[in-house]
């Protein structure tokens, strides 16, 4: 009898743990910055993974840039492969498709409108003459430099799905 009670309690505990873990997997975004040995840049929005394409003209990428960051980049990557880095550079730069940075039209410190994104020139910068419209599934992240050009800050990568 006692053994049966004990088994019942263990079963309930085990079930509760499994239930909690499953629920967490579904909505959680990655929590570590895309580069190692850097300070964190906090991302705010869009925190929801799925966004209707009807809303893209209104939504903004928002984030918090610490004061030490003099220059920053918002990068939009194809979502098929997550953003990968080694040291202070990307190992899959071909996945960078668009974004914005300090100095380009529409760049705001801490916010960039989805309508102010530009295509990557496939060399080392965005092409301000080629605006980019979101449509599909992407990863996005923000990284920042100090005033001497050193990569000092980075955010985690978040996924966003633009649905029709």
């Amino acid at each position: 009898m006692k053994l049966l009670k004990l088994l019942s309690v263990l079963y309930i505990l085990l079930f509760s743990v499994v239930l909690l873990n499953c629920g967490g997997d579904e909505e959680e975004q990655p929590k570590s910055p895309i580069f190692s040995d850097v300070e964190i840049i906090t991302l705010y929005t869009p925190d929801a993974i799925e966004i209707s394409s009807a809303d893209t003209s209104n939504f903004k990428f928002t984030f918090c840039l610490p004061s030490e960051v003099s220059y920053a980049v918002l990068g939009i990557f194809y979502s098929a492969v997550p953003i990968e880095t080694n040291g202070n550079t990307f190992t899959n730069p071909d996945n960078l498709i668009a974004g914005s940075r300090t100095g380009l039209t529409g760049w705001g410190r801490g916010e960039v409108s989805a309508s102010n994104l530009y295509e990557f020139d496939n060399i080392d910068d965005f092409n301000e003459n080629k605006p980019f419209s979101l449509s599909g599934t992407y990863h996005w992240a923000v990284w920042g430099y100090d005033k001497w050009g050193n990569l000092t800050h980075a955010s985690e990568q978040w996924e966003v799905i633009i649905t029709y």
Binding site: G75, N88, T89, D124, F126, N150, L151
Partner: peptide, 12 residues
């Protein structure tokens, strides 16, 4: 010496 990688990461 250090060279910029553009927006693709830190200095080389």
């Amino acid at each position: 010496v250090y060279e910029s990688r553009g927006i693709l990461g830190g200095l080389e």
